[in-house]
Every structure is written in structure tokens, then in C-alpha cells.
Design a protein around this nucleic acid. Structure first.
Lengths: 334, 334
DNA sequence: CGTTTCGATCGAAACGTTTCAAGAATACGC
DNA sequence: GCGTATTCTTGAAACGTTTCGATCGAAACG
């Protein structure tokens, strides 16, 4: 398997390398005759364009990177879809990376992509990485911070108003008559958790007539919901909350499963809402009321924002904040 | 932001470019004095190594690609984790791509990665892509086919014995006393579905005392399970199967939810097993018996196989087949 | 002390592509 | 038939890195 380059193609087709390049890129018209000969040579030799040489000469690649803490999270996966669609429409490919919420690993990927000369990056990270992103920008790789509002006005970011989300979820519980509200979630060091709780607080404060209990969990997965569900079912019924706002759908799903298993009626005795509106939310045993961030638009908007920054047309301040909406289902239907 | 290259670093540190390269790669010893000067220059200038130049000179990159139909599928996500771990241990990075089961899109990614000169690819595809992979190999990019047994002996592949999986799932149902078995899944054009059904057939045939009904579904998601669950619950109880083997956990989860909602007792009246043992399987309302493919080992083995092929040490035939195992839970506990 | 070996360093060539300025060929208008 | 515009084509330079052979000083050896 001799490696075949553009000059080999040129030799076989009996044209110059420049012409082959023009043919490949449409940079300049190529006569029909030579076009045919070139294509024939490409097919015959199995020529594949070498991106390294191309990129070296061009000075940039035609890819962007999307770095997330967890690709298997349906939330990020749906956004990825929007990103890829939009990027493809702009002639860009997307490199995906899984940081697993691990800082060193995230760093390694950021370095890797920078060395690879991506045009820009969209980074969703639970951590504090604004400084890191600022360095990247300073060296010429634009970034968009996804999922949290950037504190620096010059750092483009795209996020969801989680305070508002927490507010509308809790308001909904209050509206259907709940008075002993519980917020299930943690740890508060996670921004999103903190914001949702803050929204819940605000709604309760506004109402004036309800109480808010906080039930802390370490992880935000189904099994954590099971544990909390067990604990609540074990309480004296008078001590149970009558409305629960779970920090995400996984926790809510876990809770509803055990609550029902213990004979606690949802939503009659205890109404419950989740957050994120993942695919399974509507498919749960009691279809789950949830707060839905705008998945599809989100990815598209992220790419558009990144492209704007790349083209030096960053809006200022470059922060996009999306409002989530409530999806009411059976788990709060009174 | 002037682009800063290795020669700029060399100029500032007052050494030759060759020395900087040696420092970066450890190719040859560099004196402490110059090491310090070089590092200082790098920090000062914010130098980032340009991968294009490097790769062009080297003739190859240090990345491999992992192409899957659906990154958000926990099955592929878990494997990805194993792949990344192992690859990192070998000094390789992993590029992830989402083909969405879409052939043109998959093709586009394969082209992209080939142009990028990846060292090799691990490709999970529901389609017929052996010819495509053969071309890649012929042009110098080794591949490992994941998820289906390659028909060509020379095409390395790594797969799970789905026939065996279908067999043990069905055998388990027979063992606990089921006699009217139903297989829920489709379409049969999908290899994995076909194989699982074949295993089920074999188990039923062996037993001699049971019947196997096939309930076809178009998609293998929760909502499809709901539909089938509704249909079964609507039947005259005497006409219902007493044991169901669902082609995957999503379908099984959907079924168990609606069956229970309709008052059909699981597992007493109807025992049910899923397939894949996804994270949610154990967290379902009735914890789900499932067939567990060896996730972790799988990714590691895929990388090892790919590396062997890259080094020209492909075992022959280069097919690795893993055996799944049954995880018994409440949904079949009689 | 002469010779060899070894460790550091250097400068230049090479990797495969795109682009640029310029040349060749063809068509056009008169 | 001549100048000129137009359409194609060309060869060479440049992108940033690694690597190779050469050089040089110092240490090791007898």
C-alpha cells in the first residue's frame, strides 16, 4: 500500500498538482477532459486527501469540538444532535468528547483539540473553567461555555435559567394546592442545583403560605430517588411533604417507583415534578411532570453563537439565556 | 494574536528548532539550562504545538475513532469508557462520532476520519458495511467491526453471541415454568434481533413442551413496549403468554409499566426478561431480569484487537465473540 | 597525552497540500 | 489578421513539525 498523494494523481492523470487541487476544491474551473482523467486517476489509485497537509497550508481545520461531561446523558445527546445538524449545514464537522466530569480528562481533551486546530469549541462543564477558556480564546480558539452563565461578559455562554425553572416547577406545585413542599437534590456546590433551589425558595416566599423542606442527596441518579422515596414513605403520613420538586427526572423517577410500591398515592397524596424532561419522563409508571429546557434550539443556538464569535461578530454581552417551560403530566394532575 | 510556532520559541530561548523539538518529545537529551529556557519561552509565548505539521511529518496521528449509531445508548457509552481508558493507556486519543444509524452520515464520518489519518477505527454499525471497511483497510486504515460477527475472516470483528443470549433468556423462562413464550422484537432485518430470536427458537425447540409466539415491533423503544403491553393486557387472559422475552430492556420496561397499570401481575401471571442490562433495568418498577453483555471488557478488548491489527499481529481469524450472561431479578422471580 | 566515546546541539530537508503570479490556449470584436 | 479579453493550466513557494547526519566539547580510557 504505497501512500498516494495529490502529485501521484497528477502524474497518472497527466496534469499538474495545482489542477488536481483546483478540481478537488472547485477553486478554479477545470476542463471536462481533465476532470474526467483526474477522477479516473483518483478512483484507480484510491486517493484520499491528506488532511494534515491541507490543514497545515490552510492554517485551520473545518471542525469544531463539543465537550460534555456525559455523552450518554440524553440531555447532552439531544443537544449534540442539534449541533451536528447546524454545523454540517455550515460545512463543519463535530468532534465529540466525554470528559466524565473529570477535570484532568477535560483538560486533556481541550489541549488535544487546540493542538488539532479546531475552529472553536462548545464546552459543557460542571466545573470552574472560565479561566481555561479565556486562555484558549487568547491563543486563538474561540469557545462557548454551555450550561452555566459565564461571569465574564467577554466569555460567550449559553445557558438555561435554572432559577426560573425552579420557580415555575415550585409555583406549579403551589398552584395545585401543595403547602408542604420538599426540594430533593444536592450537592449545593453544583450551580444548577443551587439555582433550582433558589427558584423554589422564591416561589415559596412569594406564596407566603407554604413551607420548603430540603432533602439532600449526594448523587442525582435513580437509586438516590429510591432511597429518598423509602425514607418519605417510612414517615408518619402527617409529616410527609404533599409536593416534591426533584432536582432532576432520574431522582423523580426513582422516587415515584418506591413511593408507589409503598402505597403512597401519586399525585393524590404527594404530587411530584422532575426536571430536564428526559425521554423516560413521559414513559414512567406515572408520567412525570417535568421542566423542559429547549433541547433542539439549544444546540443550534450554540453553534450559531460560536460561529458568530469565530467571525468576530460576537454579540456583547455574549450570553444567551433560555427559558425552560413546564410540561404538566399525571404526576401533578389533581 | 500572532501565531506562535516552534521556531519562534527557539528564537526566544536562543536555541535551534531541533532542540526545541527534542525537548518536546524527549527524542534526545536536552541540557537543564536549555530546558529551562525553552519552557520559559513556551510559557511566555503561549506556544501550542501544531498537530497538522507534526502529523504531516510523522505520517500518522495518534488518535483512533469510535463510530457508533447512538452515543446516548448506555450500552455504547459504557463501551466508550473502556475504549478511552485503554487507548489513553497506549498514548492514543479517541474521536467519538454519532452516526444516528444513518448511512450517509456514517460514511461522511468514515471519510472524515480517514482524511484525518486516524490510526484505526472501531465501528459499530447496524448496517452492511464490511465492503466499506475492507476499502478502508486496503488503503491503510485498519478497522474493527463491533457488534456483529464479520463474515469475512480477514475483517477483524468483536461481537456478542446474541444467539446464545436469546437462548439463555428463553431457557430461563422455561426453567421457571413458562410454557407460552412470546418474543417481542423486530425488525428481523436487524441482525441482533434475528439472532436473539434464533436463540429463543432453539431453546423452545429443545424443551419440546412450549410454544413461541412472535410479536413484531418496528422500533425498539419504550413506547413500543407500551403498545405491546396494552395489546397483551387487552387479550383474554387465557390467550396471554406467560413468559415474555423482550428484544431489549427499553421495550421490556415499557411493557412492564403498562402491564402493571392494567393489573397484570409480573412475574406471577407473566414473567418477563429484557436484554442489554442497561442502567435503568435494575431500577424499573419491577426490577428487570436481563441479559448482560460484558460491557467493560468489550471496549478494552476492542482496542487491544485494533492495536494488534495496527501492529500487523492480527489473530486469524480475527473474530472475538463474547458470551452474555443472565442477570435474574424480580421480573422472573417465581 | 592521544584516542575514543558519548552527550548536546545544530541546520536543513522532507512530509502533502493550497495558492499565487504568471503563462498558454482559446475565443471574441473589429 | 491583430489585439485583447477570457478561460484553463502550471510550477513553485509556503505552512510547522520531526529527523537525519554533522559538528563540537568534554569525559573516559589506556
Amino acid at each position: 500500500m504505497a501512500k498516494v498523494g495529490i502529485r501521484e494523481v497528477a502524474r497518472v492523470a497527466d496534469v499538474s498538482v495545482g489542477t488536481v487541487s483546483h478540481y478537488l476544491n472547485g477553486t478554479s474551473p477545470v476542463s471536462d477532459d481533465k476532470s474526467r482523467r483526474i477522477q479516473a486517476a483518483i478512483d484507480q489509485l484510491g486517493f484520499v486527501r491528506n488532511n494534515a497537509g491541507r490543514q497545515l497550508r490552510l492554517g485551520h481545520s473545518s471542525t469544531i469540538a463539543y465537550v460534555v461531561p456525559d455523552v450518554s446523558n440524553p440531555f447532552f445527546a439531544t443537544i449534540a444532535e442539534g449541533i451536528e445538524q447546524r454545523a454540517a449545514g455550515r460545512g463543519l464537522s463535530v468532534f465529540l468528547a466525554n470528559s466524565k466530569g473529570d477535570q484532568p480528562r477535560e483538560d486533556a481533551y481541550l489541549d488535544l483539540f487546540e493542538e488539532h486546530g479546531v475552529r472553536g469549541m462548545i464546552v459543557a462543564s460542571p466545573g470552574q473553567i472560565e479561566n481555561r477558556l479565556a486562555s484558549l480564546s487568547a491563543r486563538g480558539t474561540p469557545t462557548v461555555l454551555m450550561g452555566q452563565l459565564a461571569s465574564s461578559p467577554s466569555q460567550p455562554s449559553i445557558s438555561i435559567d435554572d432559577v426560573l425553572g425552579g420557580y415555575i416547577a415550585t409555583k406549579h406545585l403551589l398552584d395545585i394546592g401543595c403547602r408542604r413542599i420538599a426540594f430533593v437534590g444536592g450537592p449545593l456546590s453544583v450551580r444548577q442545583v443551587r439555582d433550582r433551589l433558589e427558584g423554589a425558595n422564591r416561589a415559596v416566599r412569594e406564596s407566603g403560605a407554604a413551607t420548603l423542606e430540603v432533602i439532600d442527596v449526594e448523587t442525582r441518579v435513580i437509586s438516590a430517588g429510591h432511597a429518598v422515596g423509602d425514607a418519605i414513605a417510612a414517615r408518619d403520613p402527617a409529616m410527609r411533604p404533599d409536593g416534591v420538586f426533584a432536582v432532576n427526572d432520574l431522582v423523580a423517577i426513582g422516587m415515584v417507583q418506591t413511593l408507589i410500591a409503598h402505597g403512597v398515592r401519586v399525585p393524590e397524596e404527594l404530587a411530584l415534578t422532575g426536571y430536564d424532561d428526559i425521554e423516560y419522563a413521559g414513559s414512567a409508571i406515572v408520567p412525570l411532570t417535568s421542566v423542559r429546557p429547549p433541547h433542539e434550539e439549544f444546540g443550534v443556538a450554540a453553534v450559531d453563537l460560536l460561529l458568530a464569535v469565530i467571525d468576530g461578530e460576537a454579540p456583547d454581552p455574549a450570553h444567551l439565556v433560555f427559558a425552560p417551560e413546564l410540561v404538566a403530566r399525571a404526576s401533578t394532575a389533581r
